[in-house]
Design a protein around this nucleic acid. Structure first.
Length: 270
DNA sequence: CGGGGTTCCTGGCCGC
DNA sequence: TGCGGCCAGGAACCCC
């Protein structure tokens, strides 16, 4: 599932392909999750940015104010630039570019989302509107992260997945970072020292995943159709029953707040 | 307004 | 071989 490293991998590949192109036509699947895609027609692409798991495409219109094309990849979404579209049944949106190429959004399970809004107006996307700071924001330190973590009494992992303490962390990298920081996913009170450890763990886990073009469990593909390779480096996620790489205990798995979590019962004791 | 429950989706996998 | 049932899960959405 695309989280920060996967989305950033896509952003980095997409930007040089798209900047300067003009969108001349578009169509979409009728679902309300995708049917704003054609609203980007008539705009030129200025930049491709990212906030958390959201791709933000800055649009310069022929006339009127600046707009923004927002794409969330959901579980199985992918963006590809192709010379001509085929009859892919999982294509959910397509934008024709002025040089004849097409930007295509394909998403098997339709958990993704597309919006076209006035530039910077994120009110229609509550999670983006209330998104926490980027993990690599140099202004974010242990004290600041701790202050955001203690705003909620929910389980630490549930809080991380809400995107409010920090942006871009999903189930895979939450499990990985909590394992690395030796924090139980169900912990509710995390002090300053553990907050600092968790921030460091998040940064290292995300940096390493980005260096390997993200994690492909099944569906994730980069813009050119390649898989990531970080799946071979996971210490915790999806490894229930296998030995912990630190202490050898069998990793355990359980559903917390309707989300599967895996952790080491020894290293990550309550 | 925070938090809890529900919903959207389909392919892969398991057991019979 | 075929098929019903279950699972994966981000974020919008509704409600208290």
């Amino acid at each position: 599932m695309p989280e920060l490293p996967e989305v950033e991998t896509v952003r980095g590949q997409l930007e040089p392909l798209l900047v300067g192109a003009r969108i001349i036509d578009g169509d979409s699947h009728p679902s309300g999750k995708f049917n704003q895609a054609p609203d980007a027609v008539g705009h030129s692409i200025e930049a491709v940015r990212r906030r958390g798991k959201y791709l933000l495409v800055d649009l310069l219109p022929d006339r009127g104010g600046r707009r923004e094309l927002i794409v969330h990849l959901g579980m199985t979404g992918g963006l590809h630039v192709v010379p001509s579209p085929d009859d892919d049944p999982y294509q959910r949106a397509r934008w024709g570019l002025d040089d004849g190429r097409h930007l295509v959004f394909r998403d098997i399970r339709r958990f993704g989302r597309i919006a076209v809004v006035a530039h910077g107006d994120h009110r229609s996307l509550p999670t983006l509107h209330q998104l926490g700071p980027e993990p690599f924001d140099p202004g974010l330190d242990a004290a600041g992260f701790h202050a955001r973590l203690v705003r909620s009494n929910r389980r630490i992992k549930t809080h991380l997945l809400s995107q409010r303490p920090i942006a871009g962390v999903g189930n895979i990298y939450a499990d990985e970072a909590l394992w690395r920081a030796c924090i139980h996913p169900g912990a509710r009170r995390v002090g300053l020292e553990r907050s600092g450890r968790l921030l460091d763990a998040l940064r290292s886990v995300l940096t390493e995943a980005l260096a390997h073009n993200g994690t492909t469990l099944r569906d994730f593909r980069t813009v050119d159709g390649a898989t990531g390779s970080n799946q071979h480096r996971l210490d915790c996620y999806g490894r229930s029953g296998q030995p912990c790489g630190r202490c050898g205990s069998a990793l355990t798995s359980r559903s917390l707040d309707q989300r599967t979590s895996t952790w080491c019962p020894t290293c990550q004791a309550r």
